[in-house]
Amino acid sequence: MATEALAPPAAGAGPRIKSELTQQRLRAARWFLVPMLIALAVVAGWPLLRSIWFSFTDASLNNLYGAEWIGFGNYLRWQVLESGTVRWRGLLVDGAWWNAVWNTVRFAFTSVFFETIFGMIVALVLNAEFRGRGIVRAAILIPWAIPTIVSAKMWAWMLNDQFGILNDLGMRLGLLSQKVAWTAQAETAMTAVLVVDIWKTTPFMALLILAGLQMIPKDIYEAADIDGVHPVKQFFRITLPLVRPALMVAIIFRLLDALRIFDLIYVLTPNSVATKTMSVLARENLFDFDNFAYGSAQSTLLFLLIAVLTMLYIWLGKVRFDGGDR
C-alpha cells in the first residue's frame, strides 16, 4: 500500500479531484522527460526513420540529399530480358544477403546456446560456498571488461596459424595433427568467432543467472535435502523453474546483442564469407562499396528481423521485464 503512494488512481476510474500535488508532479514529470525524449528522438527515432527512407531511394554516399524515391527497388525489382525471361534483382533475391542472414542467425543461436550452458555452470559454481569464490568472480569479470576489439586481437594472435599458442597447445596435447589457420579457413572461421564470443560474454550470462539463483531461498534446498531429493533432480525441479524468469531475460539480452554482432567479426575474420553477418555486410555496402541505399535496405531488414524475433520470443516465452508499474 505504501508503494501506491502519490499515485492518482488508474485511468478509467478517473480521479475527479486532481490536487495541486498531483498536478505539480505530473507537470514536473513532463518537463523531466522532455530532454530525454528529445535526445532519443534525435539520436534514435529520426535516424531510424531516415535509414528506412533511404532504403526506398537511390541515395549514394556523396549524394544523400539528391536521393530520389524509387519504391521497393532496392528490395526487389525485375527486368524482362530480350529473350523474354524475367530476371529478379534486389535484396530479397541476393545470395550474399541470405548468406549473411544465415551466418548471423547461426552465430547468434549457437553462441547464446553455449553461453547459457557455460553461464549456468559458472553461476552454479559461484553460487556454491567455497574458499576463493571472490577470486573466481573477479577472474570471470576480466573477459567482460576487455574491449571486444582488444579481445578479438588477443585471440587472433592466440589463433594465429604459425605462431599461435593454441595450435602449439593442440599439437603438444596431440589434439591437432597439423597447424590450423583458424581464422582464415572457411570451415573453422565461424568456430573461431564463436569461441571468442562465448569466452567474452559467458561472464555476463553467468552474472545474470547468478543474480537469479541468489533470489532462490536457501530453505527450499534444505527442505529438498531432508526429503532426500537427489541434487540432479533438485536442479531440474527446483533451480531451473525458479531461475527461469532471470534466464529468459538474460537470453533475450544476449540474443539481441548477438544478432547485431559487428566488431568481433570485422576484426577477427575480415572478408571471410563464412562469417559475414548482416551488420558487417550492411556497413560494407553503406560505406565501403558506396551502395548507400542498398545498405540502408539491409539495415532496415536487419531491424525488422530482430524486431520480429524479439516479439516472438517475448510472446512465446511470456517474458516479463520489470515494466515497473508500481
Partner: peptide
C-alpha cells in the same frame, strides 16, 4: 537493445 546498424545511415 536495438541494432545500431539500423540507425547508422540516418545517424551519418
Amino acid at each position: 537493445m536495438f541494432p545500431q546498424m539500423a540507425v547508422l545511415a540516418g545517424l551519418f
